[in-house]
Computed example of a mutant assay.
Amino acid sequence: MSNASIYDTPEYESLRDQLGRFIAKEVEPHAAAWEESGFVPREVLKRMGAAGLFGLMYEEKYGGADSDAMTNLVFAEALSQSTFAGFIITVLVHTDMASPHLHHAGNAAQKDKYLKKVIAGELITAVGITEPGAGSDVAGIRTTAKRDPGSGSGAGSDDWVLNGTKMFITNGVHADLYFVAAKTGPGKRDISMFIVEKGTPGFTVGRALKKTGWLSSDTAELIFDNVRIPAWNLLGEEGRGFYSVMKNFQTERIALGAMAVGHCQQALKLTLDYVRQRQAFGGPLWDQQVIRQRVAMLDAKTRAARAFMYHCAWRVTQGHDIVQDVSMLKALTGELVNEVVQTCQQFHGGMGFIRETAIERLWRDARVLAIGGGATEVMLEEVAKRY
């Protein structure tokens, strides 16, 4: 299956090749062990940082590449050629979901302190938004941050005190730096973002969560019990965190769309290889018309979704409002990947249900892509209310 397009420039192909070599050497031979341990080793992430892969959209003075959203999408899609989604999401949370909060809203002092180390992979990041009672409904969070008057040093430098619980936080156990959303006022959207370092007194990992898929990504419950942080740790403007989260959701959802498309491509490749060699009813399964036609239709849908995904990224580079487009993309790809992977698993027969096969792992890992980062139903509502 050829997916050549106008987006396959020499620069993009070079980035894809670089990531392909990294995945072949550093990920695929070892990631089964990471599935058992439940996390990606830090030294692997540091090697990605050293290779310049963690700061494609960030400023050169911090070690970034000053690239655009198209380049970042190429990165996310190429990364998603791995069949180990736990590794993929560990990286994408760091590059596309957590650290963008620092890049977009951080002041010069905050970037000077953290961003170079984030890009180098010396500090791994996580973002704390989801709670036990608030997922896609960001305005429903209950974690609070309250000023403690007179507690800071200097005028207007009151400490903040955080209390609450976050849930389903990817990189939650092993991250070094957390960007945490908390209510700072009485209004539903009076939310601010804060920088919280690992080891801050009162901040603990409640438990590591066991998941159906994404086994090599660590996912945790985070507890904030009277966590005192200085005023300096406020990220961006007070009370504007809700809008910061909404802005960063667009980057996150394009990355998740890329992850879904990558899974579709890998599932189809695995299935073509399998049905061409698997003998049944006097010949290879590929001789069965129903299988050939179903694979062809799934490939067509995947190529269409990929083209729309690149269209969304291109619109970002042009400065357009992309909320409706990206919501469509997230809903479309989250459902499509489950259709593609489940059908491909079906064509593998009994082998598709055996643990440790790539298609079975893709089947488990794909399910959450219709839930995480904005459930399909929420995304469709975002689309509909913009007509």
Rank of each mutant, 00 (worst) to 15 (best):
E60W: 12
E60S: 15
E60R: 15
K61P: 02
Y62H: 14
G64E: 11
G64Y: 08
G64H: 12
D68N: 15
M70G: 11
M70Y: 08
N72V: 08
L73Q: 13
L73T: 14
A76M: 07
A76R: 13
A78R: 04
S80Q: 05
Q81G: 13
F84Q: 01
G86S: 11
L92V: 08
L92D: 06
V93W: 01
T95V: 15
T95R: 09
D96C: 14
H101S: 06
H104N: 10
A105L: 14
N107H: 13
N107K: 08
N107Q: 05
K111L: 05
K113R: 15
Y114P: 00
Y114N: 04
E122C: 10
L123F: 08
I124T: 03
T125S: 13
A126F: 02
E131M: 07
P132L: 04
P132A: 07
G135M: 10
A139W: 11
G140T: 08
I141L: 15
T143F: 04
K146D: 14
R147L: 15
P149T: 05
P149R: 06
G150W: 00
G150Q: 02
G152L: 07
G152F: 06
G152P: 00
A155N: 03
D159T: 07
W160F: 08
W160N: 04
L162F: 07
G164Y: 03
G164A: 00
M167F: 13
F168E: 03
T170G: 01
G172E: 02
F179K: 01
A182P: 02
